[in-house]
Amino acid sequence: MPAYTVSLVYSGAQFSVEADETILEAAERAGVLLAYSCRNGTCRSCLTRVLSGCAEHDPDYADELNIDADELADHYRLLCSALACSDLTLEK
């Protein structure tokens, strides 16, 4: 399974994310502090815009997330529930 690199544009931090882990889990593993709360995609604390690359919400739970179609179209993702599908740059 490929590992992708996540880059945070404001803090300059970088960390790798495995294909089967969420972006938030990968950040925690790397010791990068990101705002989060519920870990279930409902509180929206971790809502973040993907500036480049591909991240998709876990399809098994996509219907339960508190994110609307406009936000998805604007490349926002809930990092606690999103999986990387390429290298990424996040608006963080």
């Binding site: 709360s37 519920c38 409902t42 509180c43 929206r44 604390s45 508190n66």
Partner: peptide, 14 residues
Amino acid sequence: DWADEAIHVSFGYT
């Protein structure tokens, strides 16, 4: 408190 507040934000959003 933090865990509770996460639920509250979800309630507020919904």
